[in-house]
Write a protein that binds this DNA or RNA. Structure first.
Length: 201
DNA sequence: GTATCGATGATCT
DNA sequence: GATCATCGATACC
């Protein structure tokens, strides 16, 4: 079942946690590719690390748009990061940081140039490349169409992830608002981008 | 036009 | 853990 706008319109931190275990799916002309979300980060109003903090620009306009739409941005040159617009305050989003590859693995391998499963979707720019997500996907609606997110019970053979298997720490790579505990990931899952990060590091 | 800066990743040790 | 390649977006002149 595809996640609806009302799912994304809840509190952004809550949505970041509830997205763990859901499936990100991108169906392109080259074929479908999908993975299970195992790591997310929340970016909030009043949060200096959030792109919306400095106000609206050409780059971040998607994050001020409707919830349930994609916000994709370029960073460090030719790399892209995929977010979902969330919350009910405007300018909030959840960054998808890692997937466990599920479907279309041959296509992901081709796009990424490696067959190592741990290097396909473990990191925000890696998963964007593996799923063929670029700037053209920004502002796209995720509640229908070819780029969507599905509930954890949508795929046979996968069980929902219990709350006590979800760890919460500070975020990766940010230089501002470093101490906010806004990162969620599946404990002991080998597809998470950084395994043993402790609070405050 | 030009300088600066990353919500990174690959490649070392 | 540390270093660095790399380039789009932005801010400022």
């Amino acid at each position: 079942m595809i996640l609806t706008a009302s799912f994304y319109a809840e509190d952004t931190v809550e949505v970041a946690q509830r997205l763990i275990g859901c499936f990100l799916v991108h169906d392109t002309d080259a074929g479908p590719a999908s993975g299970r979300i195992v790591e997310t980060e929340a970016y909030l109003v009043g949060d200096e690390a959030a792109h919306s903090f400095g106000g609206r620009t050409r780059r971040n306009r998607a994050v001020f748009g409707p919830v349930g739409h994609a916000y994709v941005f370029a960073v460090y040159g030719n790399r892209y990061c995929f977010n979902v617009v969330t919350g009910n305050r405007g300018g909030e989003a959840v960054l998808i940081r890692a997937l466990e590859p599920v479907d279309g693995i041959a296509l992901m391998q081709e796009r990424r140039g490696t067959s190592n499963p741990l290097l396909l979707c473990s990191g925000p720019a890696r998963l964007a490349q593996a799923l063929g997500i670029g700037l053209a996907c920004s502002t796209m609606r995720l509640t229908d169409g070819r780029l969507t997110i599905l509930l954890p019970d949508s795929m046979p053979g996968y069980l929902p992830i219990p709350d006590d298997s979800i760890a919460r720490t500070t975020r990766i790579g940010v230089t501002k608002s470093r101490d906010l505990p806004l990162r969620f990931f599946v404990r002991d899952n080998r597809y998470v981008s950084r395994q043993n990060r402790k609070m405050g590091q």
